[in-house]
Simulated assay, not measured.
Amino acid sequence: MADLVIETHGLRKDYRTRRGTRTAVRDLDLAVPAGGVHGFLGPNGSGKTTTIRMLLGLARATRGEMRLFGQPVPRRLPAVMNRVGAVVENPKFSPNLTGRTNLQLLARTIAAPPSRVDEALATVSLTGRDRERFKSYSLGMKQRLAIAATLIKQPDLLILDEPTNGLDPAGIREIRDTIRDLGAAGVTVLLSSHILAEVQQVCDSATIIGNGRMLASGRVEDLLSGTGTAHRVVVGEPDRAASVLRAAGASVTTDAQALRVEGDLAGADLTRLLGEQGLWVAELTPVRQDLESFFLDLTSAEELGADEPRGGRKGWRR
């Protein structure tokens, strides 16, 4: 098993409210391997930020265990914090100072060499815009400067909580490219998000949570490999073809142009069954479920209180 940078076991966080106790994180087991980008995914209010705050010592766990780099936290947090960078809240910089000056002040505060400022700016692609005042930056540039600030101490673990919130498509792409480059460079990135289409492009592995508990965890390709493959079928007589395939146990939906066929039938079986009935396939295309669809299946089942998502899913654990 790969070395784990983040581990939690039975992690729980309860809040007292006027209406009683509310559980934000419910017996969460989280395992983040070293290297690459790990998605920490869930709907808003599912417990992602609360978990991150507990890992960073900003909130106290009700019970459970947490480890960063094998060290128990929060007890041993000071021993590992120099290896951790985090962007959890909105970035706070002096608005009238340039991006470079803001980073230079930070570097002096932690006694980092001045060369780290140039390296951090280059990593987040702000070289050339670094002498502009912070208040003139776009939201995406401000987020990238916040990431640059964490990179000055050259962390082994970077925790980003919803870094693309409020960004336009160009800003999202900038942050996505930065995260991908960091993961490729050997930094372990924990990326908390609910924007699944973006996450699938950068994450090597993922943990999906809902109502404060883990619904699925593993490598993204492994999670999706257990979801089954649908096929898009274009055939001359779609209504008759649909009847043939349904009689063989497949689930078939139709639109004006094609059939979507789900079930255990392989592409060769579909072609054979239809051919035996004189129905000739003009197009047969595998359609693999994406991370967003997988996520929606899991979290919608959780909201309904189901013990398992519709149809069950391989490659996920409770």
Rank of each mutant, 00 (worst) to 15 (best):
Y137S: 11
E302N: 11
L126P: 01
L30C: 06
R133F: 12
G36R: 07
A120V: 08
N90C: 04
V252L: 14
R53W: 03
A184T: 15
V189K: 00
F69N: 07
D239G: 01
R67K: 08
A268R: 14
S138D: 05
A230Y: 00
Q257V: 12
S300F: 12
M66Q: 09
T150F: 01
E132G: 04
V124T: 04
L215E: 05
A230P: 01
G64A: 06
A282D: 15
T51L: 07
V234D: 05
T285D: 14
A256T: 14
D264Y: 00
L157I: 02
T123I: 07
V80Y: 06
L28K: 06
D29T: 12
R176N: 09
T62P: 01
L259P: 14
R63V: 05
V87F: 01
A149Y: 04
Q277R: 15
L158R: 01
G36L: 03
T109N: 10
I159E: 02
G128H: 10
E283N: 15
V233S: 03
G57K: 03
G64E: 00
R18V: 10
E132R: 14
V32M: 06
P74A: 05
G228C: 07
E302G: 03
E7N: 03
E237D: 14
G20V: 14
S136G: 13
V5N: 04
E292F: 14
L304W: 11
L273R: 07
R310G: 14
T51G: 02
L190M: 07
D29R: 09
V287F: 02
R313N: 09
S193C: 15
I175P: 10
R133I: 11
G20L: 11
N90H: 08
W316T: 02
D255S: 11
N82M: 08
S243V: 10
I6R: 00
S125D: 11
T98C: 06
L28D: 00
